[in-house]
Simulated assay, not measured.
Amino acid sequence: MPDASLSRLVHDLASPDPVVRDESAYAALSALVRTGALTPGDRASLATAMLERLRHDRIEARAFAPLVLAALVRAGDGEQAWVPAVTTWYVGERDQRGHDPLLGWLHAVAHGADFFGACGAAGLGRPADLLDALARRLVAPTPCVWRDQEDDRVAHALALVLARSDLDEVTSVAWLEHVRRLFAAGSPGSVPPEATNTMHTLRSLHLALGEQPLDSGIPVTVPHADLVRVEIAALLHEVTPWAWRPRRGRA
């Protein structure tokens, strides 16, 4: 593919026009990565551009970069250094809008989660680091209650990381310490948005781990699913003790 054409797609991926950015540029870039149509040099240049894009001053530009990086990871081109770079952006991203009437899909929370889920599925990065990044995003103070299935996307990413064969029991639940501290800091009054987002995400994850999580439609096995579900249930019971109680001897 000519460099000029690739550069144009990268440029259009930052467009405020959702048709140009999402339906055209992103669709084309993801297809090029998925089908192996890019040279190694093109893929390296694309990754560099996406990592730089995470520091862009406009949310519509930042938010689509991790999706392209996720596609590269799934194609086998991921690098360990991408994980801390995306983590810095993800945990610190303040604009958590899902769909905007003018800008279309932004979805930084979901798109970032997709990157970490792709890393989990591809064996890229330490599982502890991936889980920690997702957990820190969950509990970070925010004025925004997620409304466009961000909680489900984060839960799915967590499930893919938890399916890693190199994940031990301790690491599989250590990330929940972030949640434990968040819930312990609660006080009478309105529920903080980050607490609501966390509750919704944990409920989605608990459900997924009790069924069969999928990676691109293919079932995956989560080795410590029962242990994680027990820990999640205990945490959720702390915030809704009046609604239900855990069954003895069951997750």
Results as ranks from 00 to 15, higher is better:
Val179Glu: 00
Ala155Lys: 00
Leu167Arg: 06
Val191Asp: 06
Pro192Gly: 12
Leu207Ser: 14
Glu211Asn: 11
Asp168His: 12
Ala163Ile: 01
Leu207His: 15
Leu205Gly: 11
Pro193Trp: 11
Asp152Trp: 11
Arg180Gly: 09
Ala155His: 02
Leu167Ile: 06
His178Leu: 04
Leu182Pro: 00
Pro213Leu: 10
Asp166His: 09
Leu207Lys: 14
Ser165His: 10
Asn197Lys: 02
Val173Gly: 08
Val161Ile: 13
Leu158Ala: 10
Val154Ala: 11
Trp175Met: 08
Glu169Pro: 05
Leu205Thr: 05
Asp168Tyr: 12
Ala184Leu: 05
Val170His: 13
His200Gln: 14
Leu167Ser: 07
Ser190Trp: 13
Leu160Phe: 02
Gly186Lys: 03
Leu205Ile: 09
Ser165Gln: 14
Glu211Phe: 10
Ser190Ile: 13
Thr201Lys: 03
Arg180Ala: 14
Arg153Phe: 02
Asp168Lys: 13
Ala185Asp: 12
Pro188Ser: 05
Arg180Asn: 03
Leu158Pro: 04
Arg164Ser: 04
Arg181Pro: 01
Pro192Gln: 11
Glu211Lys: 12
Ala208Asp: 09
Ala155Val: 01
Asn197Asp: 04
Glu169Asp: 15
Ala163Ser: 14
Val154Gln: 04
Glu194Thr: 11
Ser165Arg: 15
Leu202Glu: 06
Met199Cys: 12
Ala155Pro: 07
Val170Arg: 14
His156Asp: 10
Met199Thr: 11
Ser204Lys: 13
Ala208Pro: 00
Ala174Arg: 14
Arg153His: 08
Leu158Cys: 13
Pro213His: 08
Glu169Ser: 15
Val173Thr: 15
Leu209Val: 10
Ala184Ile: 05
Arg181Leu: 13
Ser165Glu: 15
Ala185Ile: 02
Leu162Asn: 08
Ala185Pro: 02
Asp152Lys: 14
Arg164Met: 05
Gln212His: 12
Gly189Phe: 04
Ala163Leu: 03
Glu211Thr: 14
Val191Arg: 10
Arg153Val: 04
Pro188Ile: 07
Gly210Asn: 07
Gln212Gly: 06
Ala208Met: 14
Thr198Ala: 09
Ala159Val: 06
Gln212Ser: 14
Ala159Glu: 05
Glu177Trp: 08
Val154Ser: 07
Val179Gly: 00
His200Tyr: 07
Ser165Trp: 01
Ala195Trp: 03
Asp166Leu: 11
Gly189Cys: 03
Ser187Ile: 03
Ala208Asn: 00
Ala159Phe: 04
Pro213Arg: 08
His178Asp: 10
Ser172His: 07
Thr171Phe: 09
Ser165Gly: 03
Glu211Gly: 05
Ala208Val: 04
Ser204Asp: 13
Val170Ala: 15
Arg203Tyr: 08
Ala174Gly: 06
Pro188Gly: 05
Val154Asn: 02
Gln212Glu: 14
Trp175Ser: 13
Ala157Gly: 10
His178Lys: 01
Glu194Asn: 15
Leu160Glu: 00
Glu194His: 15
Ala174Trp: 05
Asp166Phe: 10
Asp152Asn: 14
Asp151Gly: 02
His206Arg: 08
Pro192Ile: 10
Ala185His: 02
Ala174Tyr: 02
His206Gly: 06
Ser204Asn: 14
Ala185Tyr: 01
Ala155Ile: 01
Glu194Val: 11
Val179Arg: 00
Leu167Cys: 09
His200Pro: 00
Pro193Ala: 13
Gly189Met: 03
Met199Pro: 00
Val161Ala: 12
Asp152Pro: 01
Ser172Pro: 07
Gly210Ser: 08
Thr201Tyr: 04
Leu209Thr: 04
Arg153Tyr: 02
Leu205Glu: 12
Gly210Val: 10
Pro213Met: 10
